[in-house]
Design a protein around this nucleic acid. Structure first.
Length: 749
DNA sequence: TTAGGGTTAG
């Protein structure tokens, strides 16, 4: 027989360990508990097992008393030490030790002790299983969970009230809501906990409506809601973002005399914050006599979620004045406000405070720091914060990848993405949605397709977020057909899916299709948001649909209650500029209720250049210059316009102005991916050995805008090319056995 | 001894 001798406090972080209970042979399992063998768990705890020791001197009843008190107070280490010293362990003692481990979050250890219990000959009973099942849910161990359920079925214990209640929650935690419902339906007797577990189960899978329906059904069975029911339904209200529903539950809380419960109070503030009712949250919060830290934190978060970041900081000050010290959660919530303001200085202050108060390392806080640095435009600081973490998980990696992508550091993002596999982890849907924009930006369709293959293999194909990103990736990489395929394959299309496909057709110049898709979207009952109109107005712009453009622009406020933002005005200006209505464009700028940005003036400038209107161009440039004096594009645009109208003196003036201000022309680079190799080329670039050939084909392509190039067989192209004066390129093409897809512009990629 | 709990990162 082996016993646990001691629990060392060496917090060594073990990334992944295959515990023998997963499909291992029984002998292997027993083997790990050999005398003097040490075992480290994922939690970082290390147990050492030694041969049986006899103590015998201790007064048994006193020992038992101490043991129970350690378990009651959650003193895991002391309880384990005492458990270790006990010679005879009844199922009662085993149940207690498994209970304390599970309730302290040592799920893996609790499961190991459960297996040891049976090996040592003590039978698990109806008191053991609720905690063992909870441990399975805690460490998301689907296999063990199902195996234990089968064993319970065989032993006839599966219908026990407490065991069934635990099974409902375990299945919900594992995302198997169907299994949870089955357990619930088959229960011969259900108590309030059963109903609460099912209600909470729906919350776990983010199904607020199902949760409400379950509450209604529960009331039909004459079950009166308790504080757990109230907390869950408040959570459900936040999930469906329904303030009226939340208020209804607040009324029920008062009726049920549960309003004074601190946890219910926090849930109420949280619900109001998440449903956009901060005034109700404030009113309620001011009524509370004894404010708990969680209530303060819920207020701080509420302000951040409602776009009132500065007030979340004043709330923190008030909290401190009231003698309540901020904790990890307060700082996590504050970081959200820092990101909203985009103030890295405020973020650094929070970071510094966290270090001084010794809140680090804390994985959630550290991840929030990475996110803040990324959103504040400091990807290198995000990376630094990541590198300093003692423990990293998939979420912290995903956050770093998203931060790098947001800030255009695509190569670094890819490196961290591949590191996920190297570190033995598996990317999840969030990783995929984080990294996919990289392939869109660098237009690497081949790699993008490879990732698509991984998505299919990993079963993320039903995830709307993933499919939205794939739609965008294909559209940006020029493969509109695949983009449409992706969109059509989305089972639950959300507003982002529709916005993406509308934008996809817009960027390919098919504005009419975008408009049709918008009508379809409305028919399907999807409510457009501000981004929908950016996509839609861009579509009208690319296709020069002025009337439709105005119609949609005007409907934003009147039909959908959306105030046009600067981006929408920008789209309208692009549209007016494209059709050459410069006067109307100028009028729109003067009439708009927002302060024109350089983007707005830039749009007018580009339009006036296109229509060779020097007067409007100079007007726009004068307005733009104070806002963006270092915008090279502005100077270049103006200089080109002067050149086109033959004002060479002005061209010289602009060029010397650029020189004196230290501005150099930014070169635009186009990248083409051909057979796995990326080629970059710039305007008028003739560095490639086949540049004659390339320019000839380019000429053919340009003469066939919007034409279906696939119908051109290589021989046709060659025939067309043979008419070209450059015989050399044709000969070269024939000799090299050139095919259309072999167009490899410049091999300096 | 039994089950369910507030605010918390992408």
């Amino acid at each position: 027989m082996t016993t646990i001798l001691s629990l060392t406090s060496s917090f060594k972080f073990v990334v992944k360990e295959n515990t023998p209970r997963r499909g291992a042979k029984r002998s292997e399992f027993i083997n790990q508990y050999e005398p003097n063998k040490q075992k480290t768990f994922n939690s970082g705890r290390t147990f050492r097992f030694q041969s049986e020791l006899s103590i015998g001197k201790t007064n048994l009843s006193r020992q038992m008393e101490d043991f129970v008190s350690y378990v009651e107070s959650g003193s895991v280490e002391k309880a384990l030490q005492l458990f270790d010293e006990m010679n005879e362990r009844s199922s009662f003692l085993w149940n207690l030790i498994i209970r304390v481990l599970t309730n302290s979050g040592f799920f893996e250890e609790a499961l190991d002790l459960y297996f040891r219990m049976s090996i040592e000959g003590t039978k698990a009973d109806n008191f053991t299983f609720p905690f063992v099942i909870k441990a399975c849910g805690g460490c998301l161990d689907h296999d063990v969970g199902r195996k234990i359920h089968s064993k319970l079925f065989k032993d006839g214990l599966d219908l026990d009230l407490h065991i069934s209640n635990s099974l409902i929650l375990m299945y919900a935690k594992l995302g198997c809501i169907g299994s949870a419902e089955k357990v619930f339906d088959e229960m011969p007797i259900r108590d309030l906990v059963s109903w609460n577990s099912m209600i909470n189960g729906y919350i776990m899978i983010s199904d607020g409506l199902a949760s409400f329906m379950c509450v209604r059904k529960m009331q039909q069975y004459n079950m009166r809601p308790d504080r757990f029911t109230i907390m869950s339904t408040l959570h459900a209200s936040s999930l469906v973002c329904s303030l009226p529903k939340g208020k209804e539950i607040h009324a029920l809380t008062i009726k049920s005399k549960l309003e004074c419960n601190p946890m219910v109070q926090t849930s109420l503030i949280d619900m109001y914050g998440k449903c956009g009712g901060m005034c109700y949250a404030e009113r309620f919060f001011n009524m509370i006599s004894q404010r708990h830290i969680a209530s303060w934190n819920a207020m701080i978060r509420g302000y951040a979620l409602n776009g009132r970041p500065l007030e979340s900081f004043s709330c923190l000050r008030k909290m401190q004045e009231n003698g309540c010290k901020p904790d990890n959660v307060s700082l996590i919530n504050l970081l959200l406000s820092c990101s909203q303001v985009g103030s890295v200085l405020m973020g650094k202050t929070v970071h510094g405070y966290a270090i001084r108060m010794e809140f680090l390392s804390h994985i959630v806080l550290e991840t929030a720091l990475i996110d803040m640095y990324g959103k504040c435009g400091e990807p290198r600081l995000a990376e630094l914060a990541f590198n300093r973490m003692h423990q990293r998980n998939l979420i912290s990696r995903n956050t770093l990848i998203a931060s790098l992508v947001q800030n255009g550091l695509y190569k670094d993002a890819l490196k961290f993405f591949w590191d996920i596999w190297n570190d033995g982890l598996k990317p999840d849907a969030m990783t995929i949605t984080g990294i996919l924009p990289v392939y869109s930006e660098i237009a690497q369709l081949r790699e993008g397709k490879q990732l698509h293959g991984y998505i299919v293999k990993s079963g993320f194909c039903s995830n709307t977020f993933v499919l939205n990103s794939l739609t965008y990736m294909y559209a940006k990489c020029g493969d509109l057909v695949s983009a449409r395929d992706m969109f059509d394959g989305i089972f639950l299309k959300d507003v982002i899916s529709w916005n993406t496909i509308i934008m996809a057709y817009a960027i390919h110049g098919y504005g009419e299709v975008s408009v049709k898709l918008f009508s379809k979207m409305k028919k399907m009952g999807i409510k457009p948001n501000a981004s929908t109109f950016v996509s839609l107005l861009s579509s009208c712009s690319v296709s020069g649909m002025v009337e439709e453009g105005w119609k949609y622009f005007n409907s934003m406020k009147s039909e959908y209650g959306i105030d046009p933002d600067i981006e929408h005005y920008g789209c309208m200006l692009d549209l007016l500029g494209r059709v050459g209505d410069l006067n109307r464009a100028k009028q729109l700028i003067t009439e708009m209720p927002l302060e024109p940005t350089s983007r707005i003036w830039g749009s007018l400038l580009a339009a006036s250049r296109r229509h060779r209107d020097l007067e409007v161009a100079e007007f726009a440039a004068k307005k733009m210059l104070p806002l963006e004096h270092d915008n090279t594009g502005l100077y270049v645009l103006l200089s080109n316009l002067y050149a086109e109208t033959g004002r060479w003196e002005d061209v010289k003036r602009i060029k010397s102005l650029m020189k004196s201000r230290g501005l150099t022309k930014t070169v635009g680079v186009t990248m083409v991916d051909v057979k796995g190799k990326t080629f970059r080329f710039t305007n008028e670039d003739r560095s490639h050995e086949h540049s004659h050939l390339i320019y000839d084909v380019l000429d053919i392509i340009l003469k066939n805008p919007r034409g279906d190039l696939s119908k051109f067989k290589p021989i046709d192209l060659l025939r067309k090319m043979s008419k070209s004066t450059d015989r050399h390129s044709v000969r070269l093409a024939r000799n090299s056995g050139w095919r259309f897809e072999d167009l490899s512009p410049f091999q300096n990629g």
